[in-house]
Design a protein around this nucleic acid. Structure first.
Length: 314
DNA sequence: GTTGAGCGTT
């Protein structure tokens, strides 16, 4: 499909603007947002049902309806809270969503040979699966014998948790992961921490993805790769609303939390105090993040880097 | 090239 233009307007009866599609017929949310800042999606009125329909949005890419974009006028969606100012309304939807929202489930006891496709095939018998992962040794690629799965339907999740599973000849258990227990403390920052990133996620892709929630002002990915990123929004309420969520980017479940985590970890507290378990002291004049980086360096130097996770060991 | 309770590279 060649590049074409689709018609987009702020409101249904307003003068539309023509926006270019990509070569494959999709439209980037960023292209829309370039003309309609803060846009998070598109909708249109179905000529058949006369109802408003949402345009499918996956990882920042808008996909044409079944019969193509056609000559319809698409209407811009903005993040909730921008139009709906009442706190009651937003907190009501939050509670409603939070109640039956599915979580990643940990799958324990997997056979070493079980692949992600195997997991998907097995769990699809319980309902639509939106994410599967087998945790592997980074170096060897061998399975660690556990993984994660997420369903779209709450009912599927309930059924799966309530029973044992025979997968490739072994009994496996599915549970809510420990990392999921206990709610995150509230936050007043415009910046969120995005954990469990993979190395192939680019800053551009993260921006594309997160702009569906609100205007993104910055994306920071530490180099070398550290499996996390920081995303800053224009609006701190958007950041706060995402805190504690597990979002799926390119099939991977990433975890959103406070950009500046609470001091509840002994290691972190000692680092902050400038003292290490092995007695090495450093000055506390460094900034928090730099200090954390420095601590990694020091730790590697005194023999705590045996696993070589950070690629320093030769 | 091994293994079998656990918890996802701040």
């Amino acid at each position: 499909m060649a590049e074409m233009y689709i018609r987009i307007a702020e409101e249904e009866n307003e003068e539309p603007m023509e926006i270019p599609s990509e070569d494959d017929g999709t439209v980037l949310l960023s292209t829309v947002a370039a003309q309609f800042p803060g846009a998070c999606g598109l909708r249109y009125r179905s000529p058949v049902s006369q109802c408003m329909r949402g345009v499918r949005l996956v990882d920042g890419i808008l996909h044409a309806p079944e019969n193509g974009w056609g000559n319809l006028v698409y209407v811009v969606n903005y993040p909730k809270g921008r139009k709906m100012d009442e706190i009651d309304a937003s907190s009501a939807t939050k509670i409603k969503r939070g109640d039956q929202k599915t979580s990643d489930l940990i799958v324990l006891g997997l056979p070493w040979k079980t692949s992600e496709q195997d997991l998907k095939d097995y769990f699809s018998t319980f309902g639509e699966v939106i994410m599967v992962q087998v945790k592997r040794d980074v170096k060897t690629g061998n399975s660690k014998g556990f993984g994660f799965v997420r369903f779209t339907e709450w009912e599927s999740q309930g059924k799966v948790i309530s029973q044992r599973h025979m997968i490739d000849g072994r009994w496996c258990d599915c549970k809510l992961p420990n990392s999921k227990q206990g709610p995150d403390e509230p936050m007043r920052s415009r910046k969120v921490f995005v954990g469990r990133c993979t190395e192939d996620m680019t800053a551009d892709e993260l921006r594309q993805f997160f702009m569906q929630f609100g205007e993104v002002t910055d994306v920071f990915i530490p180099k070398p790769f550290r499996a996390f990123a920081f995303v800053t929004f224009a609006d701190d309420q958007v950041a706060a609303s995402l805190c504690g969520e597990d979002l799926i980017i390119k099939g991977i479940s990433v975890h959103i939390s406070n950009a500046e985590p609470k001091h509840n970890n002994t290691r972190q507290m000692m680092e902050r105090a400038g003292r290490f378990g092995n007695g090495v002291c450093i000055s506390s004049v460094f900034g928090k993040y730099f200090q954390r980086d420095l601590s990694r360096h020091v730790c590697l130097g005194v023999g705590m880097g045996e696993k070589g996770f950070w690629g320093q060991k030769k």
